[in-house]
Amino acid sequence: MPHTRHPATLLDLRKGEEAILDRIDLPADVSQRLMELGFLPGSRVAASFRAPGGGPRVYRVDGTEVALRSETAACLHLRPSPPEGTATSS
């Protein structure tokens, strides 16, 4: 999926785009919860549907789908776009 933009956080991902998660910038209990749901650093996250009217967006991660509000998605930072093929789980 070639794109020239450089999404910095999950919030910047458009529907259908995917990227590698780098770190979660949230309090420990929240980030632990997110990690349990599959948002581990190094994992591949894809943006999916967004709730009508600018509500939360659904993200695909580790075989499941999780909805996050924009303000939360903005705290999940992405790795700078890696070249194709090297993006495997760390």
């Binding site: 997110l34 909805a67 996050l68 509000r69």
Partner: peptide
């Protein structure tokens, strides 16, 4: 403060 909304679909 607002707390995060995390919901598995």
């Amino acid at each position: 403060e607002r707390t995060p909304f995390v919901l598995e679909m």
